[in-house]
Amino acid sequence: MNDQFARMVGDRVRFYRTAARQTKTVVAGLTGITPDYLYQIERGQKLPTIPVLAQLAEVLRIKPGDLLSAEPIAAPRRASNAAGDAIYRAMTAPTTAGPARVSDLGRQVCEAWSTWQTSGHRYSELTTDLPELIATTDATVRGTSGKHRRQAQSVAADLYGLVRTVTKRIGRVDLSLLAADRAQRSAEQADDPLRLAGARWNLIQVMLADGHAQAAEDEAMKALTELQAALGPDHLDAVAMSGALLLLAAVASVRAGDAWTGRERLRQATPLAERVGDCNVCWTAFGPTNVAMYAVSIEVESGEAVEGLRLAAHIDHERSLSIERRVAFLLDQAKGYAQRREFAQTLALLTTAETDAPEDVSFRPAAHSLIRTVMKRGRRTEAAGAVQLANRVGLPV
């Protein structure tokens, strides 16, 4: 019971801190505790004393009862351009941040990735903390040498992979490309073939988002060949990473107008997924569930909505390790129903996505496009429901 209560209090502290757009260091300092103690409170590992709880409430400008109430809390509004600007400054401007222990830094990056892949409010939770984490990581890389420096570069590669996906989702493709490049350079300095393949996987994501499908496919297949040469067929993490690269190559083929090659890439990935199971190598969430979801994406993107929806009916999307993939799967189905002009089902899937991850519906252009489609083409009740959804997620009507 105490553990559950501690997690509830921690969730609320983190919610109100991120809603106020304050870093852990600032809030901890004003509260009179260490950043590590605040970190443990937010993760539900420590239950704050009453004096600390009262001081946290004062710093966050809320009532102490707000941190204890069992009532649901509303999602904060969309992150503004200020979030992207703060990340940009952290990536480009000199910093006064001090280095951290590499093991502690690695734990923080893993926690940040976990938040990104599991929290429905991941945008507001991460965009506040990322600038500080970037600055600390850069200082740690500069302040270490030898084996420890390679370990720090590995952590930096993981962090910049996260920065890539976050900045992409908040509409900063320029920062997404910069982060992907940083991840690749860090992986090279770490002399880690697996992380280098993961960094290239991130770069391919940027290329796909930027409309360079053929270049993305070429890069995916080149990265796949080099990874297999470096680590061999018996390295299970390399097998999973190979499968993740094949899935991106499949999507790239479809977007380049070659659906049959896309399906062939998917077939090549299937036995790899069966071999490794659902796993999360380099945070790619590769495995049988992800392959099945990509099969739906490929059919819907090819205009084969009936086949895509048939495949989707047999998938338990909750088994995916990543909320991002789960939401993408729901949006793929919504797109399939929109292609069939079945807008009631489209709206129902959008509403499910909003329930699971409200901020994703606020940020994803694919969700915005589907909402507008239902508003314009749906029946009166469907259009009205889409308008209500648009208002809830902050999309101009």
Rank of each mutant, 00 (worst) to 15 (best):
V102K: 06
A19K: 13
L60C: 03
A90H: 01
M91R: 05
V59M: 02
P99G: 05
L67I: 08
T23R: 00
S80W: 11
P99L: 04
R77E: 15
A90W: 03
S103C: 09
G29T: 04
S69N: 07
Q55K: 11
V26N: 04
S80Q: 13
T18K: 04
Y37I: 02
V26G: 01
R21T: 13
L38V: 02
A93L: 11
L47A: 07
G32V: 02
A100N: 06
L53I: 04
R21C: 09
R78P: 10
Q45Y: 10
A82Q: 15
I87L: 06
P64S: 06
L67F: 09
Y39E: 10
A97M: 01
G44I: 06
V27E: 03
P64I: 09
L38R: 00
A97F: 00
E42D: 06
A93K: 10
T18I: 05
E111T: 13
R77Q: 14
R43G: 13
S103V: 15
I87Q: 08
R61Y: 05
A100I: 06
A75Q: 08
G84Q: 12
L60E: 05
L38P: 00
K63W: 09
R78E: 10
I62A: 08
Q108M: 12
P94H: 04
T23C: 01
A93S: 11
K46V: 10
I73F: 08
R21G: 07
C110R: 15
R77H: 12
G32W: 02
V27N: 02
Q40R: 12
T31P: 04
I50H: 09
P99I: 03
L47Y: 08
V102Q: 06
V102A: 07
Y88W: 13
T18R: 08
T92Q: 08
A86P: 03
Q55W: 00
A20K: 12
K63T: 13
E71D: 15
T25Q: 07
E71W: 10
E58T: 14
A86Q: 07
A28Q: 01
G65A: 14
Q45S: 08
V26T: 08
T92P: 04
Y39D: 11
T31M: 01
A90S: 03
R17C: 04
A70W: 09
T96E: 07
Q40F: 05
S103H: 12
P35L: 00
K46M: 05
A54K: 13
S69P: 09
P76R: 07
D36F: 14
P48S: 02
I41C: 02
P35T: 01
A79S: 15
P76H: 09
L30P: 00
R43W: 05
A54D: 11
Q45V: 08
L56E: 03
L38G: 02
A20M: 09
G32F: 01
A19I: 07
A54I: 10
V27I: 08
I73G: 08
A83G: 07
K63Q: 15
P99E: 05
E58H: 12
T92L: 06
I41Q: 03
D66F: 06
R89A: 13
A93C: 08
G84P: 12
Y16W: 13
A70S: 13
P94S: 03
I62C: 06
E71F: 12
P72W: 13
T23S: 10
A86K: 06
N81C: 11
D85F: 14
Y39F: 10
L53F: 05
I41D: 02
A86V: 02
R101L: 14
D85I: 13
E58S: 14
E111F: 06
K46Q: 09
K24F: 07
K46R: 11
P48T: 02
